[in-house]
Amino acid sequence: MIIKGILSIAIIGLSTLIGYLISMNYEYRIKQLSAFIYSIKIMEAEMNYSKNFLMDIIKKLSSSNEKVVSCFYSNMEDLLRQSYGNDFSTLWSASVDLSFETSALSNSDIKIIKDFGKNLGKIDLENQQKIFDYFYKRLDFQMEEAINEKAQKSRVYKNIGVSVGIMIVVVLI
């Protein structure tokens, strides 16, 4: 009886944890998107006001607070150092694949971030600004979607986790 009780608690606990972890993905996506947008805003300011070189800006951003974002810039910095002279957007894209593969970002978020790298540093400030503005618009939309998804699905997954655990226990007992 005691074993049954412990087993039931374990099953419910595990299932609740899985539900919780899935629901946390929605939370992480928002966090990571917002950290990435913040990093791009720093990049924009560095370009506009200090005219710092992109490589220096990337180096600075590699010490970002959000781990996934700092990891992305740090990978980008390494790739630039190893493969300097090669196409920037190819390196950017490689760094996105390397850093965001296991992140909470959706495929469409990742595609937008890859697209952003296509013209980064290749054009004058006026046109660069247009790219920034377009990027913010696209990511704002993604952010809205992420917030809605979180509101709709986060609690659902938490509840499903608990319910599935209880169901398994009921069936088994």
Binding site: M47, F53, M55, D87, L120, G121, D124, L125
Partner: peptide
Amino acid sequence: NSVLNYSVY
């Protein structure tokens, strides 16, 4: 682009 340190701006 790379000669200009990837920073045309």
